[in-house]
Design a protein around this nucleic acid. Sequence first.
DNA 1: TTTTGGTTACACAGACCTGTGTACTTAGGC
DNA 2: GCCTAAGTACACAGGTCTGTGTAACCAAAA
Lengths: 208, 208
Amino acid sequence: MAPPPTKQTMKERILETADKLFYLQGIRAIGVDTIAAEIGISKRTLYNHFPSKDALIAAYLERRFVQPRPSDKPPAEQILATFDSLERRFAAKDFRGCPFVNAVAELGPADRAVKKIAIAFKESRRVWFRERLNELGVTEADALATQLVLLVDGSIAQDLVRDDPAMARAAKEAAKVLLRNAGVDVGDGGDGGDGTVKQVKRHKRAPQ
Amino acid sequence: MAPPPTKQTMKERILETADKLFYLQGIRAIGVDTIAAEIGISKRTLYNHFPSKDALIAAYLERRFVQPRPSDKPPAEQILATFDSLERRFAAKDFRGCPFVNAVAELGPADRAVKKIAIAFKESRRVWFRERLNELGVTEADALATQLVLLVDGSIAQDLVRDDPAMARAAKEAAKVLLRNAGVDVGDGGDGGDGTVKQVKRHKRAPQ
DNA sequence: TTTTGGTTACACAGACCTGTGTACTTAGGC
DNA sequence: GCCTAAGTACACAGGTCTGTGTAACCAAAA
């Protein structure tokens, strides 16, 4: 489309467009011609910046691998805020699941490069949870961190097929129970503090 | 390959082979020629049984949509046994995630037929959990059922990326905490013993 | 001015894909 | 024996894909 006003390297413009198309429509579904046409450049230029589509895919995934910004909020709040952020992303209509899980799913087990970066990403998320749990003095921080990433990935998978942002709220309520069970004070936060799970309202974005 | 000794309709042979290849390598990655060649039939025969590849994909997913066998075990045991079964499937080397999630991920949001059956499958699992929770007298059965499917799908996604069957155990431990918190007796904290669980009336206070 | 590096237009190779057309063969029921 | 249904072999149309080759173009630096 129209070139953005900011001075941006060609490589970054290619990556940005590839990201949008790969993520929203699938890696195999998008050809390099489509990416070049979307930017308005020739396919030759694209291949001058990336030696192959595989290299572009790898760069796309590496660009998606961003660390969460550091926060000075209390660790328990940071953990729970993860699910609020998730809910906001679910509500956006351009959310289409976890790019790493999707890439592994559609590229298959043979693509070891993709699998490697996906594993690294998932582990980094788990470690992020574990660090905060350690700060909170949770004894079984490692096991609990694993359980929290299960809730994150589970809600992402569910939202991918159901388009239901309430999955993030359900995950948050479950996370609260797990945290409380580990001795973390998560406040009553409107869910009564008696350990009962709040009823989750379900509203679909796309009526079937 | 060699035709199986059992009398099997051609349609079923095609579906069986398509299932194996689609699931293990991806739907877009497998062409109809590959399926026909794997069975040792001509492509024409395949198209005499399925009008298009899309029809074959739909039949593949419908064949994957199997209801869990009825069981006479106590509901809480049935629920927890789900995660044991999951762990066994993770350990098999031909496990490659949830076929419905994978299909939605690789076929994109435009394929409404695939999305529809994926939604139906996910909902059927959620309802299965809810029915058992209702039997147990859990008040917030619907919300808790949602949380349990988050754990199921989360462990599937994690295992897909990490090839780690322990994800199912982690999910099971989290499920126990959630069940206990809802007043279901799932035995003591230890995973040992005979694994039997007893149904006990709910007590609202969670252990803090 | 000359050079140089990035870009463009465009053709093309070679592979793979879905789906069809057609004529031939084979097996079973009548 | 004859007929029908199912399967086979094989070519082919028309499309997509990745990746390359080539000559021209253009702007900015030297």
